[in-house]
Design a protein around this nucleic acid. Structure first.
Lengths: 125, 125
DNA sequence: ACGCTGATTTGAGAGCTGTCAAGCTAGAGC
DNA sequence: GCTCTAGCTTGACAGCTCTCAAATCAGCGT
């Protein structure tokens, strides 16, 4: 995971600021594509997509790994690996509180992805 | 590509009908995750993301492969391979017209992905 | 019919990905 | 300090992905 292009960038831009216009409105630059593709890739696995959903919809905005794991027929290390992938993609962040680790969604990047895909001209169909 | 779970389903539902609530509003079912992940996976490559953008934003709603290929430093077969991936994910459709093949976006699935990611409660952050 | 151009398919190789078992680190509690 | 639990890291392996070269298929012109 260290040979990939720079994972993303969600810090400098205000969280939620769109980085690019919707794909319907103009060609995505090579740079923008390289920056956003890893996030889509991270969501491109059923396990991670479900993890992302569980984290994003957690009441209180965060959820313990111990509450994520039982939802899957997978070993702990495997879940941990998927969580790491989501973390490195900039989609979630974790912090340890005592014995437990809590995960929280980072809405900024998700908002960018949603904006990119949003179909705002239903006329062409 | 034939061992994967059923690629998607965009036909029966009216194009654009949301299949699931946003990930912020509740846990995605295993089935929904399995159905949508391949679409995210298809977008999880910079080349395909850019192809998708070029196709979606094409004037007239469609674009010839011959106009897509020169935008990349990749061989024809490789572009063809990526287009096939997008096609199998249900994101685009192609049809041949004479010597040329034209690609067109299928907005239904994209709308579902956008709806899934849309952050509609900025209060929790 | 023949050859030409545009696009896809096939075959092959290097590299990445998902998974688990085994081992390790961080805190809590005794 | 020791031990227990929660979670992460490492190592290994099967399977998938990205890429290209070579071969193939589909139409168009002549």
């Amino acid at each position: 995971m260290s040979k990939q292009p720079p994972p993303v960038r969600t810090e400098p831009t205000a969280a939620g600021a769109a980085c690019c216009p919707p794909i319907w409105q103009g060609n995505l630059s090579t740079e923008a594509a390289a920056a956003l593709a890893p996030a889509f890739k991270a969501l491109g696995d059923p396990v991670r997509l479900r993890l992302m959903s569980m984290i994003a919809s957690a009441s209180g905005g965060e959820i313990c790994v111990c509450d994520l794991t039982p939802g899957f027929d997978l070993s702990g290390p495997t879940i941990s690996h998927h969580l790491k992938t989501l973390r490195e993609a900039g989609l979630v962040e974790a912090d340890r509180r005592g014995t437990w680790v809590y995960y929280r969604a980072r809405p900024g990047l998700l908002r960018q992805l949603a904006a990119l895909l949003t179909v705002d001209e239903p006329a062409s169909v």
